[in-house]
Design a protein around this nucleic acid. Sequence first.
DNA 1: GTCTATAAACAGATAGAC
DNA 2: GTCTATCTGTTTATAGAC
Lengths: 218, 218
Amino acid sequence: MSEMSATSVDRTPTRIALVEAALRLFGRKGYDAASTREIAAEAGANIAAIAYHFGGKEGLRRACVEAIGDRLSAIVGPPLPAPVGRAEARVLLERVVRAAAMFLSTAAPARDMVAFLLREVSEGGPELDRIFATVVEPRHRHLCALWGAATGTPPESEATRLAVFAMVGQVLYFRIGQPVVLRRMGWQTISPDAAGRIGDLLVRNLHAALAAGERTTP
Amino acid sequence: MSEMSATSVDRTPTRIALVEAALRLFGRKGYDAASTREIAAEAGANIAAIAYHFGGKEGLRRACVEAIGDRLSAIVGPPLPAPVGRAEARVLLERVVRAAAMFLSTAAPARDMVAFLLREVSEGGPELDRIFATVVEPRHRHLCALWGAATGTPPESEATRLAVFAMVGQVLYFRIGQPVVLRRMGWQTISPDAAGRIGDLLVRNLHAALAAGERTTP
DNA sequence: GTCTATAAACAGATAGAC
DNA sequence: GTCTATCTGTTTATAGAC
């Protein structure tokens, strides 16, 4: 069968190549602008293979969402770790922000994944429910737990959830807005050095925001 | 003639209606997904009117960028005000952040404009140069001037420019990520009240970031 | 499973009447 | 300026050979 759950995906080489190519092209040009012919060509496969493996273009989009969920799990680990102390939570948050800044600024696949996800979210696409349930909600909840531990505030309070969204927005903008960031900074690319300085800034903002959040509800 | 500079745009009713419809549909579905037939229908005009007024679909995209530039100027005023003192700069920045949070969270046209711009930027579309020159660069430079005045740091230093981008990213995410924000917050819509609380958070983060920026280069 | 060939719908652009 | 009608290319999906 070609319809499988996310827990046991078949490892057909063409299937994998198709998802990879689709992720790249959906991310760069958008779902509608990327044609199935183009995707198949980039994957070194036939157009009919898309219908065979995914039932159609929409199935390929869904497979991309599932692939992103899997990659994210592989990169940042399982969504829910053990609860931690205040100092430890701070260190973990700092580490997440710095790693995200580095990954988002430099890694090429990050561009395509973020662009794809943000477009789907912004448009309210048909995979929004799955995106929220598998990539947004678990990670956000995890960050809220860390934030709550770091500030001593309730992890699921409105203030905490909004604060985490603000932090995420800061990091993500350096990815989606990268073309204008590069122009404004006079850079041709984001060097590892520059990515480090962006990470420094975001960590500084993180500590500042944590301190401000602490003051409001001590 | 139908090719005019941004300073003197002709006010043909159908032309205006077409740009408005295009901005809406480009913003919601993306440039490629929005068909010229659809745009013409929503504008109450004929398909051939697009070719007549804009020379083609690409011309319509360009007209959208120019329209956004004009609207932005009308909303936030001319890009370059007089230099200000430290306390005044703080107040102005606070006002900008709060106004942006309110506008971006609630106003319907904001969604389409931001979605359109961010997609064009992210894709590196053909209008990127114009977008950077007319909407990004002047506003960013203005904010940097305010930031520099508020912290006593050089307005065009790397740290200042990056800090302003981070602040902008925070605000923008509540617009483009709104569907997931709503889900995570358990809201059906962003009420004026909720927008106010988001504004409060962003202003708090602004002050925290300003203080942190001050400490590094006093 | 992978291919070729093709169907059916749709896109953007344009010619020409009014 | 605005319309109808149409041209040309491209899209996704599918039928059927291998």
